[in-house]
Nucleic acid binder design. Sequence first.
DNA 1: TGACTTTGTTATTGATCAATCACTATCTTT
DNA 2: AAAGATAGTGATTGATCAATAACAAAGTCA
Lengths: 173, 173
Amino acid sequence: MAKSDFTSVNRKAEIISAAIEVFAEVGYYRATTAQVAQRANISQPYVFKFFSTKELLLLGALEASWSRVIESFRQVIEKTSPELLEATLIQEYENIQAMHHNEILLQMQAQTIQEEAIRQSMMNGFKEVREMVLAAFQEAGVDKAEERTMLFLARGLLCNVAVALNMPELMKG
Amino acid sequence: MAKSDFTSVNRKAEIISAAIEVFAEVGYYRATTAQVAQRANISQPYVFKFFSTKELLLLGALEASWSRVIESFRQVIEKTSPELLEATLIQEYENIQAMHHNEILLQMQAQTIQEEAIRQSMMNGFKEVREMVLAAFQEAGVDKAEERTMLFLARGLLCNVAVALNMPELMKG
DNA sequence: TGACTTTGTTATTGATCAATCACTATCTTT
DNA sequence: AAAGATAGTGATTGATCAATAACAAAGTCA
């Protein structure tokens, strides 16, 4: 059981990775489960052994992408001095953008998806990130912490758009 | 010709209005041309007499939504005193958000659509808004005008997300 | 070895939808 | 009034795709 479980978890993770790529590249609704399967080197129906609907697959992919951001931020907050905190968080987000920009593209798409489960996942993600950053800023003695948190999130979103549309000039300043 | 032209333009505008609503409500890819037609009180094939593909209809809808923002901003800039400029622009955008939030939801969706024509339309929209706001800030003697423009756009995007996900707390500060 | 479970596939289906075709009806103009 | 243009519809089609069903092979373990 230990072994088969391990394999199964791997498969699931592989499928999620494939899904993130394909969803980001062609868009969730235009992406087919066959494309995801091909990217993961398995047959199309086999995807459904792990995710019983396409939406659950999206949910898994979203969860993975939020975990990346949240875990990264948690580590930065944990071991960065107060003075460097904001700058380091910004740097970390830029790094995620560069290394895993498919995950960010996926989140952007999901911002406008109406299915309740997806909305919930997005709301949780934003809520957790905001609360984490706000608490860290307050802890670090940043003044106007709420405003700084708001601006941090705002710049993050603009950065997303700048990357998605390949318009770096949007970030000038 | 004058009369028939007028009718035709009306129809086109009606279809675009219907499309904005339907696309915003269910998402561009899930929305069907039949739904748009129903909303516009015409038959599904008749849509194609005005827009020969679904993508061209989206393009028309996007153009309309960017025009609204750009025209509104142009008017604010034209007749607002320098000291009130930034605050009035923010207020104007919040007003558009409230009155035409379907158009904003549509723009958000289009931020991640990969079709080249759509990307171009979005790039043009952002470029025009940015240049207009930047020029106005400079004209008004706002200092660090580039940074202020960037933050203006950034807050606008955060506002979009806050509305789309119904998370007003994101804008605190 | 032989029952049972896990891992995986091929083939198929039932819906869905953009887009086309073949019409009809209503103006407009002479 | 009749010819032609304009506005509009019903029926259909050709693709596409998520999801299921039915099956096969490889591993596990008594």
